[in-house]
């Protein structure tokens, strides 16, 4: 089994077979965990099929492991830790699927190299010259910039920052990175779940743009709050009282009262997850049906 299919099996995101290869359909059961058939892909030697040397090199280059950087701004490292919670696939992911080329504590590199993808954790402090510079540099050096976690995506907890604290009382203004640079995709969450991180990485490696579309769309907004539920869902006659927001809230700030979300602003960390998980905020019907085999 290829690495990618191992990872996909771990994530239960085996792609639905097309009509043509219906017979190869893996019949793994969620109940028994048993798999009866396995799709085998034969490697094709390109030179055997008459490809030129240049073409072979091009394919090799295209299949090179993506070069990923991890940039840590004003965040708590929780997002990076969530990545490492993919215990079962982490070693393979880091060894064989991606190259981590830059990152404090991860890689012994002083100058920021060119990267295919930069995961930026944390918001950026306007008064911190080093962070501001690093953020600008990321935009220049990375093909794709991902706001990794809610602090980078929409400010999250750091929205409450107001300075006046040691060791740097002057550090008072923290902004989501999208307010300063163009962001290509966002993975909000405080922290994002280990599963969504793994699914996103797999989708990036496979260039599965359909799966990534919501992350691309989410990069367009740098706002998030529990009050979004009232403002964007209830006020727009969209709420059905299903309870998904209350389930998704990572700080138990959302409860359901008379079939509508009630949110406790003292508990809310402005991660935005309640609205993002709401089935009425955006609806990925095709992908869901594909994932379910429907």
């Amino acid at each position: 089994m290829s690495l990618i299919s191992k990872v996909k099996r771990f994530l239960r995101i085996e792609t639905k077979p097309t009509k043509d290869d219906e017979e190869d359909k893996p019949t793994e059961s969620k109940i028994t965990g048993a798999s009866t058939t396995e799709k085998i892909k034969k490697p094709v030697n390109l030179e055997d099929v008459g490809a030129s040397k240049q073409e072979v090199e091009k394919v090799a280059e295209e299949n090179a492991k993506p070069r990923i950087g991890y940039i840590h701004l004003s965040g708590c490292t929780g997002d990076g830790m969530a990545l490492t919670e993919n215990y079962d696939i982490l070693a393979e992911l880091l060894t064989n699927m991606v190259d981590i080329v830059y990152g404090q504590t991860l890689v012994d590199v002083w100058d920021m190299p060119e990267m295919d993808l930069a995961l930026v954790e944390g918001s950026v402090c306007l008064q911190d010259e080093h962070s501001m510079h690093e953020l600008q540099e990321v935009r220049e050096k990375a093909k794709l910039v991902c706001a990794f976690g809610s602090c980078a995506a929409n400010g999250c907890f750091t929205r409450y920052a107001r300075g006046g604290q040691q060791a740097r009382p002057d550090h008072e203004s923290f902004l989501p990175i999208g307010d300063l640079i163009d962001v290509d995709l966002a993975i909000p969450g405080c922290p994002p779940s280990p599963e969504i991180i793994a699914k996103t990485v797999v989708a990036l490696i496979q260039e599965d743009m359909d799966y990534l579309q919501p992350m691309i769309d989410l990069a367009a907004t740098t706002e998030g709050c529990g009050c979004d539920l009232q403002k964007y869902i209830v006020n727009n006659a969209l709420c059905t009282g299903c309870g998904t927001c209350a389930m998704a809230c990572q700080t138990r700030a959302v409860t359901m009262v008379e079939g509508r979300p009630a949110f406790n602003s003292d508990r809310c960390i402005k991660c935005g997850i309640c609205r993002i998980q709401c089935p009425r905020s955006w609806w990925p019907e095709e992908r869901i049906k594909e994932d379910l085999g429907l």
């Binding site: 994002p192 280990p194 998904t244 389930m247 998980q277 994932d291």
Partner: peptide
């Protein structure tokens, strides 16, 4: 509608850990 909330969480578990 509840089914939809659950299925969206399973396909896109942004902030929902180890539940899908």
């Amino acid at each position: 509608c509840q089914t939809m909330g659950i299925r969206k969480m399973q396909s896109y578990p942004f902030g929902v850990r180890f539940l899908a």
